[in-house]
Nucleic acid binder design. Structure first.
Length: 588
DNA sequence: CCAGTTACTTAGTAGATACACC
DNA sequence: GGTGTATCTACTAAGTAACTGG
């Protein structure tokens, strides 16, 4: 096995033969795997970085209750600042947020404060809010030297705490800072929004590292909760968060061996699905006719997961989280059946909130048999009843496991996303077009996947304006082209008369100038199309989590496009394994 | 089969930074 | 050189899925 650092060195010194590199890299990525779930043999790190302690407000920043100034105790004041900071945010207008915040805030108050402050509506956080605005303004106005100093301090912290040693490799840690205290910002209609996320102390922290490593030292006067040496897990640090009682972890960066290998494995599983997906599809179609209700439900759910790339849909504890669903947890109220709609037969209209409370809305034609089954599943049910009442993710995944080793519901999403990218790239790439146009095609292929997976984003606040600006530029460019054309024409006429070297050269240069502006216009127009089509669609999520990077690398190699054009630095680091592995004939 | 626990991936967004343009 | 905008990064919430023990 070859240490990662050595591999880096070889690449940095610039060995250009692809073959040499991939031979080399095979060793790294196909380095011996541990058995029995062992993830590492040696792990050493410096532990987490804690949130900076609370700095009390200067005396001039006042809090008013019912119009009267009130000096808050430090604990109460800290929690108050969390709210004060957020005054401009929509959250602070929401009843649940306000209610949860107030309840938790009161818990931090001294008895006198508690007896005085009984109504949030009488609290005036305005000066706090202004104070923090001033602070952030001051930060922006800092001198170059001050900014540089801050940057250097940050870098020092990163160098000290941001890396660990795992089995001979120095690896980057993803999140070495402990989450600071604040108000919980759940997504969508979350019943716990506004609750106080408490400050994490060393006494809450579990450290995981190897026995023979230098164990991280807790801050002076403190102790860790526990120190573990569990090499069957990948995390370095964990603690239990107080809102949902779930565990939070510090883990490695996506560029690390441990994450890279797992990612690679994920796509290999999806490729194995590719080999047997036809059989599985035939099977679930057969199961639509099953005598057993459970089997039919399983088969229809799987059909949705496969066709629409829906998530599995685990059960959730009611009242603990926002009301969102996936495939197995769909309720009757989330679909409408139309025997005929938009001129098509057997249409299903989906409308539900999925992960992160992102709305999934889609009208899809389905097979008659699926339609009839859905009617059957919905019979005698209330809107709030489960559509698939005999099914859950555990049943579904057990079934899938029997169809293929390692198969679970989410593999379908990975498989369908990657295969779609590959198909779309084949279809959309025009060999005759230039690089900019090819990249537009790439983005369009990427977009097709994002649409399939329903990856949305809030349209940028400045979208309309930036679109307008781009249009202005396009118009200006068109004027320029007109001008360049006229100049070329003039030069040509001149040359016709004079027929000398000077005028010939002038024609040449005018030609080039015209070509240049025409290309610039092309680029701008492509950019405009791309941006318009991308308004509400987030490409990043699929690019990072669903698309086998080897497909993209192969595409780049095939069309002689630099990897940098489609992957930025972080993405190239994450996909280092693929960049090293894939050649232009790679097929998913 | 069920509920509870744990570990890990996937997700959108806020704020920082880089970049283009005047 | 300053400003507005696009892009990147960090952050952390919200999923999936395995496992455990009754």
């Amino acid at each position: 096995s070859i240490p990662f650092s050595l591999l880096n060195l070889r690449i940095q010194v610039g060995i250009n033969s692809n073959r040499a590199i991939s031979l080399f890299v095979c060793f790294r990525w196909e380095e011996e795997r541990y058995t029995d779930g062992v993830k590492w043999k040696f792990l050493e790190h410096k532990g987490p970085v804690f949130a900076p302690p609370y700095i009390p407000l200067p005396d001039k920043v006042k809090f008013y209750y019912d119009g009267k100034h009130m000096k808050l105790s430090p604990q109460a004041e800290e929690v108050a600042t969390f709210f004060g900071k957020m005054l401009d945010h929509e959250y602070t207008t929401k009843d649940i947020f306000r209610k949860n915040f107030f309840k938790d805030w009161r818990k931090e108050m001294k008895p006198e404060e508690k007896s005085t402050i009984v109504d949030l509506n009488k609290c005036d956080f305005e000066e706090m809010n202004q104070h923090f605005k001033d602070q952030s303004e001051a930060r922006k106005q800092m001198s170059k030297e001050e900014k540089l100093k801050l940057k250097e301090e940050n870098e020092k912290l990163l160098q000290e705490y941001g890396f660990c040693i795992m089995d001979n490799h120095k690896e980057r840690i993803a999140n070495f800072r402990i989450e600071p205290p604040g108000l919980f910002r759940g997504r969508g209609n979350h019943p716990k929004m506004g609750m106080l996320k408490r400050r994490i102390r060393p006494e809450d922290i579990i450290i995981n590292c190897s026995k023979d490593s230098k164990v991280p030292v807790p801050p002076h006067g403190h102790k860790w909760k526990t120190i573990r040496h569990d090499n069957k897990v990948t995390w370095l640090v964990s603690w239990t968060e107080n809102i949902q009682g779930s565990i939070k972890y510090i883990m490695l960066n996506p560029s690390s061996r441990i994450k890279g290998e797992k990612d690679w494995q994920k796509y290999e599983t999806a490729r194995r699905l590719k080999k047997c997906v036809d059989k599985i599809r035939a099977q679930y179609r057969e199961d639509w006719k099953s005598k057993e209700m459970k089997v039919r439900q399983r088969a229809v759910a799987l059909y949705f997961i496969d066709k629409l790339a829906l998530r599995a849909g685990n059960e959730k504890e009611e009242g603990e989280t926002a009301d969102t669903v996936g495939c197995c947890s769909l309720r009757v109220e989330h679909i409408k059946l139309h025997t005929e709609l938009d001129g098509q037969e057997y249409m299903v209209e989906f409308d539900f909130l999925g992960k992160d409370s992102i709305r999934y809305y889609n009208k899809v034609p389905v097979e008659k048999r699926v339609f009839k089954n859905l009617q059957l599943f919905m019979e005698n049910k209330q809107p709030e009843d489960d559509l698939f009442d005999r099914l859950n993710t555990s049943i579904l995944n057990k079934h899938l496991q029997e169809l293929m080793d390692g198969l679970t519901a989410k593999v379908f999403r990975t498989y369908n996303a990657s295969i779609t990218l590959q198909q779309q790239l084949k279809e959309l790439t025009n060999p005759d077009e230039n690089v900019a146009a090819k990249i537009l095609s790439y983005n369009r292929a990427n977009r097709a996947v994002a649409i399939l997976c329903n990856h949305q984003r809030a349209p940028p606040k400045t979208f309309e304006k930036s679109m307008q600006n781009l249009q202005t530029k396009i118009d200006a460019k068109k004027d320029q082209i007109g001008m360049a054309r006229r100049e070329l024409k003039g030069a040509k006429a001149d040359h016709k008369v004079k027929k000398d070297e000077k005028t010939r050269k002038s024609v040449e240069s005018k030609k080039k100038a015209l070509q240049r502006v025409e290309e610039q216009l092309m680029k701008l127009e492509v950019q405009a199309t791309d941006r318009e089509e991308n308004k509400q669609i987030a490409l990043g999520t699929s690019k990072l989590n669903y698309l086998d990077p080897r497909i993209s690398i192969a595409w780049c190699k095939k069309w002689d496009i630099q990897t940098e054009k489609i992957y930025n630095k972080t993405q190239r680091e994450k996909f280092a394994w693929a960049i090293d592995m894939a050649d232009e004939d790679y097929e998913f």
